[in-house]
Every structure is written in structure tokens, then in C-alpha cells.
Design a binder for these strands. Structure first.
Lengths: 222, 222
DNA sequence: TAGGGTTCTTAAGCAAAACTTAAGGTGATG
DNA sequence: CATCACCTTAAGTTTTGCTTAAGAACCCTA
């Protein structure tokens, strides 16, 4: 998430930058309208935070010009101009929200999150502790770092997590993950569990995937 | 455009209904929380306008339950609860906007229009690193140099970039770019990815388009 | 409508990654 | 301390993807 803040008052600008970066939004600042618009038009930002009164170009002009190219990227005004007329002008220029100064940072944050929500498409997700699986995109994250698993690894981990808290017998695993419907035992499962543990860096303290001797495996929140 | 207003105070309710219908929004009123939620869940509305304090069910509860079914339909709170804490609670419950009473009808109207806007439209430009796509003119630029892509190449690149950061499965790509709705696998996608990489001069260091073996491809900022 | 160019698709050979098997090591259990 | 289940590694096999080239389909324009 990259945010562009266009704000000429240094105090507010740095306050915003600091607060936003604490929330893990990568934040750039432009201190005048010309620079602001130029940066915005690079298309590198996921959200714009605009002041109205700016040297060079007003926030309104930035918003309008930006909107002619980028219809979807959210824009939020953050301005001292607080009359109804101004609010309406701001919103009509293409902004998604209009916050009046003085504002509470928490509210700003929440309104940014509202915009983020409506940007993202809903994904099916399942998780186990700090491990997250995105079933649509086949992505795996541990502590927000992406980790690549192969298809079979993913399928196996997925099966275990979907049944978290329940012991999964080896025969069930073979049936559901490998689609083999008769008795079968080479050490395939072991090999894959091993690979998953290695890639996810699961140790004895962090054994989200525990082996149940003689039966199978179990995925467990710790 | 159908709007559902959930508001127990008859004066405000009828004022809203009248105002909204003058603007050609077809408007229904629910005067308590239970009826409000039931109506909302029919899925017949394009936007919800919620009061917070309601007999039966609070606006917050309505919003949360509604959101669990309808992820995208915009919800706007219209309430006398005006502290920051309440505002944040309201927004966190899944609302798209939060307007404090007393409010100006024009501002409400404008904020409704904001929601309508973001329901429609698409960006005309999308980008990935130094690559820029202009969806109107079908032009592609890399480092500001124009590069000619064929239609299919453009469509494929566009699809990947619109989903940047997410792995796109081959089947999804075939479905969305080729419009083929059944299982299909020749190597078409590969050929096109290959062509795009070549034209955009993507090397191992600059692989904006990475292959995810066994699954598909992913467009990534580096 | 014939011809030239462009674009789309298929196929084939090569390269690389993933899958499976097997074998030797490790650790638990009786 | 012997056995059995599990873990790990390495090597062979299979699958998947990349690239190139060639034919088919689709424009334009004359």
C-alpha cells in the first residue's frame, strides 16, 4: 500500500507520514500542487491524500486531473475548508471522501481502511497461526512473508489446515490429496510433510503440523 | 438505483424519502432494525442508509450482518452518534461512510453519488513498475518508450497487471482473456507470455511477470 | 476477390522444476 | 536394545514450461 500525501505545511505532512508509516503504509510527500500531480500521475500510488490550498495547483485541480486518468484510485481530501459548499465541491471533483481539519488521526486511518476494503477483491483464505493460505491465488504467507509451495505441497497443507484440530489419517490424506482410492503406502506423505516443514521453517517449538505416530498428522494452533 | 433507509424517526425518514426520490432514487423505509435487516438481505437495494439507534437491532448489527452476505453494496451511516470512538466503530462494522447528524442533505446526496461512482467505472491506466498501459488507446509504454503489443498480448498483460500481486491460475487466464469456459490446455498462454516478455525486454533481473510453476503467472512490482 | 501483411494458434524439441521412490539415518516405544 | 515408524536426502522419472517455427485465420488495400 503506497500513499501519496500532498500537503504544504511541513508539520502536518511529517505527522501524517510518521503515523501512516507506523501503520505500514509506505508514504511519500509532495509539498506543492505541481509536484503532487506529477507524482500522482506516475500511477505508483494506491491512495491520494490531498490538501485543498496548495502552492502551484489546488487540491481540486489535482483531483480532477488525476481522475481523468485514474478512475478507481481513491482520493481523500484533508482540508480546513469546512463549509458545505466546499465539501460538495471537493466530492464533486472526484474524491472518495472529504475530511475536515482539525481531524482525528484514528478517523483518517479508518477512512483509509474503508477505501482499501473496497479496492480489494475478496479472497478465500484459511489460516493456522501465523500461516495464511489464499485459496484463490494459491499463495502462502508466514508472518506476512510469501513462501512458495508446489502444488502438492499446497494441496497437502491446505487439507491439513482445513481439518485443523482433527487428526488426519494417512489413508485419508492419500485419498484426498493424491486421489488414490486404494491402500497405498510409500513414504510420499512423509516427504511432503518434510518439505513443508522446511519451507515454513517449523521447528519443535513451532510445530503447527504435528505427527501422530501410527496414524497420520494434525494441524494445530499452538 | 434503489436505496433502503433504516430510520425510526418518522420526520427524518420522510424527509429523506422525499429528498431522495426528487433525485430519482427509488427509496424504501424501514422503521426498525429487524425489518431493516430483513429488507436489506433481500438483495434488492443498491445502497443502505442506516441510523445507529434503532428499535430491535442497532445499525451496527444490521451493517455487520449485511456485510457478511453482501460485501460490495455501499452502506452509509447517518447518525447522531458523533464521537470519534463511535465513528470508528461505525466504519469498522463495514460501512463505507459515516455522516453525523445534523447533516446537510446536499452533502448526503454527494456522498451517495461518491458511492455510486465507485460502483461503476474502471481505471483507464494501469501500471506495473516502469510499464504503463493506457486502456483507452491500447498503448503500452516501458520507461516512456512505446511498445507495440497485439490485442491478445495486451489483454493478457492487462489481466495480469489488474491482478498484480496475486497469482493468476492458467484456467482463470484462459477464462478471462480467451473467454473459454471449459478446461483447455494447449500452450497458448505460454506463447503469449513469452512474446510479452520478449517485447518488454523482461530478463531474469527484471521479471515483472513471474511464472508460478504448476499454477500460472503473477505480475509483481520488484 | 486476390494478395500481403499481421495476428493467432498449434506443435515439437529442449530445459527445468516437480513428483515419486528408495535407502539410510534418527528417534520413539516396548 | 531391538523394532518400527518416521525423517531426510538423493537420484530417477515424469510433468510442465519456454522457445521457435510453421500453418491457419484474419484483416486491409488494391
Amino acid at each position: 500500500m503506497k500513499i501519496l500525501v500532498v500537503e504544504d505545511e511541513p508539520g502536518i505532512a511529517s505527522f501524517l507520514k510518521q503515523g501512516l508509516e507506523e501503520e505500514n503504509f509506505s508514504t511519500d510527500i509532495a509539498t506543492d500542487g505541481i509536484k503532487g500531480l506529477a507524482l500522482a500521475l506516475t500511477g505508483n500510488y494506491d491512495l491520494l491524500l490531498l490538501d485543498w490550498m496548495l502552492p502551484g495547483l489546488s487540491g481540486i485541480e489535482i483531483c480532477e486531473q488525476f481522475r481523468s486518468k485514474f478512475k478507481k484510485t481513491p482520493v481523500i481530501f484533508l482540508t480546513a475548508k469546512d463549509t458545505i459548499k466546499e465539501t460538495i465541491t471537493g466530492l464533486q471533483s472526484g474524491a472518495n471522501d472529504y475530511i475536515k481539519k482539525p481531524f482525528h488521526f484514528e478517523e483518517l486511518l479508518e477512512r483509509i481502511k474503508v477505501q482499501m476494503r473496497s479496492m480489494e477483491t475478496e479472497d478465500e483464505i484459511c489460516s493456522l497461526g501465523t500461516i495464511t493460505l489464499d485459496l484463490n491465488t494459491h499463495q502462502v504467507f508466514k508472518e506476512n512473508k510469501e513462501i512458495h509451495l508446489t502444488q502438492k505441497e499446497f494441496a497437502l497443507l491446505c487439507y491439513l489446515i482445513k481439518n485443523k484440530g482433527k487428526i488426519c489419517e494417512r489413508s485419508q490424506i492419500i485419498e484426498n490429496v493424491w486421489d488414490i482410492h486404494f491402500d497405498y503406502d510409500t513414504g510420499v506423505i512423509d516427504v511432503y510433510v518434510s518439505a513443508i516443514r522446511k519451507k515454513l521453517n517449523l521447528s519443535a517449538e513451532q510445530d503447527y503440523i504435528q505427527t501422530v505416530r501410527g496414524i497420520g498428522y494434525i494441524a494445530k494452533e499452538i
